[in-house]
Simulated assay, not measured.
Amino acid sequence: MKTQNIFFRNVSKVVLVLSILFMTSCGSDDDGTEVGVVELPASLLTSYTGNLVYTPIDGSGITENNNGTATLSRSGDTYTVSFSDGVPSLTGITFITGSNGTFSSASAGSSSSGIVVEEDDLRIGVTISGSNWSFAAN
């Protein structure tokens, strides 16, 4: 029993040290730029034309259009992407700034998404509850 207590005490010390190292090492990687939710420039809130593919989980058929549209709009503090061809909208999107006027959004958990928008370009790859959205502006 005494051996188990010593073992768990040592393991907890190792976990504590590794946690402190992890937290301090993350802070030293900063390049001076603030990362946070940003407001997109009004010029990016427009319609984009491109290759649209939507695959619903219910098996009702794939929607595919080489000249599909995706319209990016703002609603309060979040953004919505509305699609042509009866494809469901993506809502509640937030963006962070990247380099050279590129803005991106990503999420994890039960959904997986990557949305990148920059001047004249919108790229979307999203999976939510088994349904998939893909869009690439021409």
Rank of each mutant, 00 (worst) to 15 (best):
L16P: 05
T94Y: 09
T71P: 10
S84Q: 08
D29I: 13
N10D: 12
L16D: 13
E119G: 00
D31A: 12
G98P: 01
P88W: 10
V37E: 12
Y54N: 02
T127P: 04
S89H: 00
F22I: 10
V87G: 09
L52Y: 11
S19P: 08
L90E: 02
T69M: 13
S107N: 12
N132Q: 15
G109N: 02
I96H: 09
V15M: 12
T3E: 12
G109K: 02
L16W: 10
S84K: 07
G130M: 03
V87C: 10
I115F: 03
N5G: 14
D121I: 11
N132R: 15
L18S: 11
C26K: 10
S12A: 15
I57G: 03
G68R: 01
T49S: 14
G86P: 01
K2F: 05
L45S: 01
S25Q: 09
G101M: 06
S25E: 13
T127W: 03
I124T: 01
T63H: 05
T97K: 13
T91N: 13
L52G: 08
T69E: 15
S47R: 00
T3Y: 08
L122R: 00
P41L: 03
S104A: 13
E64Y: 09
R123G: 09
V87N: 06
F135Y: 01
E34W: 09
S129E: 08
L90Q: 03
F22Q: 05
T97G: 15
T33G: 02
S25Y: 07
S82I: 03
S84G: 09
T46A: 07
I115L: 03
T97N: 11
D85P: 05
S110I: 09
V37A: 09
D120Q: 06
S43P: 02
F22W: 08
S47E: 12
T97I: 06
A42Y: 04
T78F: 06
G101L: 06
M23T: 11
E39K: 07
N5F: 13
D30M: 13
F103C: 02
A137M: 01
D120I: 00
N5P: 06
G50H: 01
K2M: 05
P41R: 01
Y48F: 15
E39S: 12
S107F: 10
D77I: 10
I128K: 14
S134I: 04
K2S: 13
S60F: 12
G32F: 10
I96W: 03
V11G: 08
A136C: 03
T94G: 03
D120M: 01
S75W: 03
L44F: 10
S25G: 15
T3C: 06
S113L: 09
L44P: 06
N132D: 11
T71I: 13
T24I: 13
Y54C: 09
N67M: 08
T94S: 15
D85Q: 05
D31S: 07
E119Y: 01
P88S: 07
S73V: 14
T46R: 14
F135C: 00
D30N: 13
S12P: 11
A137D: 00
N5T: 14
L90Y: 02
V116D: 00
R9H: 14
T63K: 13
V116R: 01
D58F: 07
G125A: 15
A70K: 00
G32D: 04
N5R: 14
Y54W: 12
N100T: 04
P41H: 04
T94M: 10
S134Y: 10
G68E: 04
T71G: 11
T69K: 09
E39L: 06
L72W: 00
T33E: 14
A106F: 07
M1C: 06
L18C: 13
